[in-house]
Design a protein around this nucleic acid. Structure first.
Lengths: 192, 192, 192, 192
DNA sequence: GATGAATGAGGATTCATTCAT
DNA sequence: TATGAATGAATCCTCATTCAT
């Protein structure tokens, strides 16, 4: 008697458990056993639902990325009346907000980044994030700058976001207001 | 009497082997067995010289950091006549040069960064790097800006360096000239 | 649903395998690999059931002690009509019988004794045995001697039992009838 | 330029180091490395002088036994005027004195006993001790008892000595005066 | 669907020993 | 004589995965 709709329950549950496990113990400490325990289920069902540990990790990273761009989309819709720098700053702020809503994602994201360095699948996913963030920035910047300049500024802003994330991870969290202030001041300099 | 001076030969040899192993296979793939094979010695001597795998990794990271700041010092001495933005750019360029001299350090450094997230020892080391880089930047910037502003700009530049490293790691290498060009243009904007 | 009731099967099975392995190869030769092979299972399940080799050894010693005192209790119940020296001799005989039922326990017990010398856990267990045996002897002896004397005689009898075990272990077994004869003759001397 | 007489210096030095190591860390913890460190020499010379770790252990046990019987001989000479029970008690007292002079031998001796259970060489050595002790007792007892009885009493006394050693080892030492008192009272009972 | 049982491959590490110096 | 360098074998243990139930 298979219970219907179990995947829809179990999958997010296991993904969340994976995020927490990685946050707490790092990638090397996030064993299926730990993740299973955290989710309150047997480690064996990770194979059942994801075909193995790697499958779970892939889905976890996809979920993180999906969630971020969903949030970004919402924020952009909410601020669609804004213009110029403000529009760009929505992207910046959302980037930092994401980590504030779920502080554990900082460590997890960093871990995936390191993983991407040696795994084709994760590299592809990381590039998706990387490109989409830059694309979003260019989209807004080209309204106020020529396309060439827009690309350069987008690259700088994207790098600033990632760099501040990285440095923030060392201090146990990102200082959102300070980070956004600095980026805004840069943008004002660039655009005025 | 035994062979003398072996530590001076073996230690750097094993550190280099560790860097290569991590570069090729990632942290999880860099087993003592692999590192030993790469160095052409028995895995057991890792314990002999470093007291365990962790000891080797620590020394490897220390070595990377030491090497970077040694290079930086040399470059700053060489360019001591420079002034203003040029002085700052020496730091920026050295940061990117380091990875060009040894392309594999990008992945390794990123791996250590992820490791730092869950290991006290590596966190401390990473912070040493992080702070010293920023300090070096502030040092040069306060010659041309007031201290408060110098700190902010230093934070931005440091974040740009790290962020561009990070993004560069996705593309299999850092585009040094593009990166330095962008950072210089930011500095000119800020300072002029 | 998994196979149920396996612990009740596997635990005694592994304990028995451990006893045989120690008997045949000594403590240093009783590796998890050997024990696993002897039990016809993978060495890994020792961790599954006992949390590690040490856990198995602890349970093995506990099992030996439990078994002995269970046997002793039964014998004392069976001989509850006996009195005086006969009652004491039940304890003595049971001590030697235990090793006859399972000849391998002599070596194993001796091994645990040596282990107790440097391990807190095993020391505690050995003291439990040591004290309970003496207590049992005092219990019977105080029916026929004043308490002070009973304690002394108990100490002598307990020492004789252990000493004869020890010496018997050198000869590949304890000569039960000779041992009990000598102890009885001592008791008769003491009590008459 | 071989230094002459080194064996006479190194061998006892290493034997003593072995005894201390076994006392402190048990047989399993007494590695050549530890013993070497304790003796202040390289572990490698254990092979040089004893042909391997096992050689050292054999010599250590032989040394212990030799030392005990040397002491016993001296005491018997010193007390050669004594007679009857007193003569026997010299043996008993010496047995317990031995462990008082060097408290660490209790643990070491016990360890060898356990080792004897699975090693032909050590079994032989242990039997030498066991038989010589009994022979010494019979020697004195047959002056006051018929040979048959003397053998029985010798067996009892030898068992008491070993049993009390064993039990004493659990308590961190042998209570010499209590032990000798009990054995003497037994002998008086037997002989009067 | 879900589980605990069970495993095999592989992890770091320890150890006694050998060897060149 | 004495050493540190070096190793291979063997240790326990961990882990992702599979399987019968």
């Amino acid at each position: 008697m298979p219970k219907v709709g179990m995947p829809a329950i179990r999958k997010p549950q296991l993904i969340q458990a994976a995020i927490e496990a990685i946050d707490e113990r790092g990638f090397s400490g996030a064993t299926v056993s730990v993740i299973g325990k955290k989710a309150g289920v047997s480690p064996a069902i990770i194979n059942h639902y994801f075909g193995g540990k790697n499958g779970l990790l892939e889905e976890t990273m996809k979920s993180l990325i999906r969630e971020f761009f969903l949030l970004l989309k919402q924020e952009l819709v909410r601020g669609k009346k804004a213009s110029g720098i403000d529009k760009v700053m929505i992207i910046v702020k959302t980037s930092f907000s994401h980590s504030q809503t779920q502080p554990e994602v900082v460590k997890v994201w960093m871990g995936f980044w390191a993983l991407a360095m040696h795994s084709h699948v994760f590299l592809r996913l990381q590039r998706v994030y990387s490109k989409r963030l830059k694309t979003a920035l260019v989209m807004e910047l080209k309204a106020i700058l020529d396309i060439q300049k827009a690309r350069e500024v987008a690259h700088i802003v994207a790098s600033l976001i990632d760099g501040m994330w990285l440095r923030g991870s060392l201090d146990g969290g990102i200082n959102k207001s300070y980070s956004t202030k600095l980026i805004r001041s840069y943008l004002e300099l660039e655009i005025s």
